[in-house]
Each structure stands twice: as C-alpha cells, then as structure tokens.
C-alpha cells in the first residue's frame, strides 16, 4: 500500500498482514441481488471509509464481515478464519470484530458499566473485577467514566454512541466496524463521537466505517470506497477520491453530498 498522500490518514502505519479478505462475494435477499462480486482486501491498521447512496448495500457488506448477514457465494476470511456455517468460526470471528450501530443498540436493562462488562465476563471469561477495571479505562477513553452507573435511557445520543464504542472495545477486538455511527445524532453530538473514532484510528485500530462524514474521511481514512447498486464502483486514497473521482456515478454522488 503506497502512503504518499499528505493527509494524516494515509500517513499512519499500515502493515502487510491481511486482516480481512473478501473474494468474489455475492449476496441475495430472496430474488434481490444485493451484493455483486465484492472483492476487498483490508490490511491490519487500515482505516476504510465506505460511502454510497442509500440502498447501495454498504450496511449489508459490512454486516457480512461479522456474519450478521450470510453471504451465498464467494469467501470472507477474517483473521485467517473463514466464515462458513460453522458456529465455532462465527463466534471466533465475532470475538475479534467489534461493531457499532447507527442506533447504538445498547442494552437498556443494564447499566453502562454492565453493558461494557457483560461480553468480556461471559464470552471471554474475564474475572469480574478485571472486566470492571478494563471497562472503566475504556469509558475514560471515550470520556464518560462518570456515567458508568447510569442506564442508557438516561444518556444523550452522543453519550450512548460513545458507550457503544466502549462496549465493543472492551472485547479487545482487532477490527472495528462502524455502520453510520453519527447519522442518528444531532449535529452538536456528532463531533464528540467522531473525536472518539479519530482517537481510535490513531491508536492503530483496523476500521471499516460506513459514513458520509467526509471531513472524517479526509482526516483519518487511508482509503475511501464508493458503492452503488451492490457493487464497489471506485476506491482510492481520500485526496484522489475527492479531488479527482473517475466514475460518473461517483462524481454525481460527490456533487450531491458536497454541494448542500
């Protein structure tokens, strides 16, 4: 991977090790061909932003990576584990891949701290005390340790999303997936979540992020992927992607989101 561009994004370290390998992947919902021949190689430490018009299959693609959706053809290999119907493999992949959702999906019946410690305790079998300590460090990292004993219903949207990020991080994932993490938030809360994500990117986390926050893409991404109609249409380094898009559909999309 060349990293010559000036943006901070491309300047960060990327290793040669492959984190995610998607080959010739197709997916159908019934008759509807949602994903068509997806090929994608993600190296460890890469920060990829996926954009594209609504309904283009962005969410579906990243949800295939932790098997929230099943693909029907082609292969997906995450951390050298191939995703098949084997439940063991699926669980192994899910332990390594964290996911942050558009609507946070915190567990409303548990406190913030319990949200964060539940999976480490029950899935990774971390002793309770250790799990609490590590959860508190992550809550500090997303800057809300003082909310630890509140319930999600008592927090603002931005705070909830930061808890959701902390909850994923508590599992010590090697890869993080974000599905439009800021699009359900009010404008003044977007930046607090983006700051957390930038911080995460700078720590070297492998990230795939579906978002239309182009400022974020320019700042941290080392690669931007544009999808339309279930296909990857174009991908490039952020500077080149934004300043010099090649495909007509990319140009149209960019003109729509940048000009209002």
């Amino acid at each position: 991977m060349a990293n010559t561009a000036e943006s901070t994004g491309a300047a960060m370290e990327i290793s040669d090790e492959v984190a995610i390998q998607i080959n010739g992947m197709h997916k159908w919902y019934g008759d509807f061909h949602v994903l068509k021949d997806i090929n994608l190689t993600v190296h460890r430490g890469e920060r990829i932003v996926v954009c594209g018009p609504s309904g283009s299959g962005k969410s579906t693609m990243i949800r295939c990576i932790n098997r929230l959706e099943e693909h029907q053809r082609g292969s997906i290999v995450v951390d050298d584990i191939e995703l098949t119907n084997d439940l063991k493999n699926i669980d192994a992949v899910r332990m390594e891949v964290g996911m942050v959702f558009q609507h946070f999906n915190l567990f409303p019946h548990l406190t913030v701290l319990e949200n964060c410690t539940l999976a480490p305790i029950w899935v990774r079998k971390v002793p309770k005390k250790e799990a609490i300590e590590s959860a508190m460090t992550y809550l500090e990292r997303v800057k809300i340790p003082e909310q630890a004993h509140k319930y999600p219903g008592q927090l603002s949207g931005g705070q909830q999303q930061r808890v959701a990020i902390a909850r994923s991080l508590c599992m010590n994932p090697r890869i993080m997936l974000f599905d439009e993490p800021t699009s359900a938030l009010d404008p003044e809360m977007i930046s607090e979540v983006l700051d957390t994500m930038i911080d995460l990117a700078q720590s070297g986390m492998t990230m795939i992020c579906v978002t239309h926050e182009m400022g974020f893409a320019r700042k941290v991404a080392n690669r931007v992927i544009f999808m339309d109609g279930g296909e990857i249409i174009e991908q490039n380094e952020p500077e080149a992607f934004f300043n010099n898009p090649q495909n007509e559909r990319t140009k149209l999309f960019l003109s729509q989101i940048l000009n209002h």
Partner: peptide, 27 residues
Amino acid sequence: IPKGQFEAADSLGLNFFLKMRLIILPQ
C-alpha cells in the same frame, strides 16, 4: 424486542443461550 438487540448481542460474540438469558429474556 427490536432486532438491534439481537444484533448487538450477536456482534459481541454471545451464543444463543447467553443472548437469550442475559439480553433478550430479561427485557
């Protein structure tokens, strides 16, 4: 229970029984 709760539990690697017992059934 919204689908998101099932998905969040899945994405954290909880198996079926843990997901039901800790997340879905209590709610």
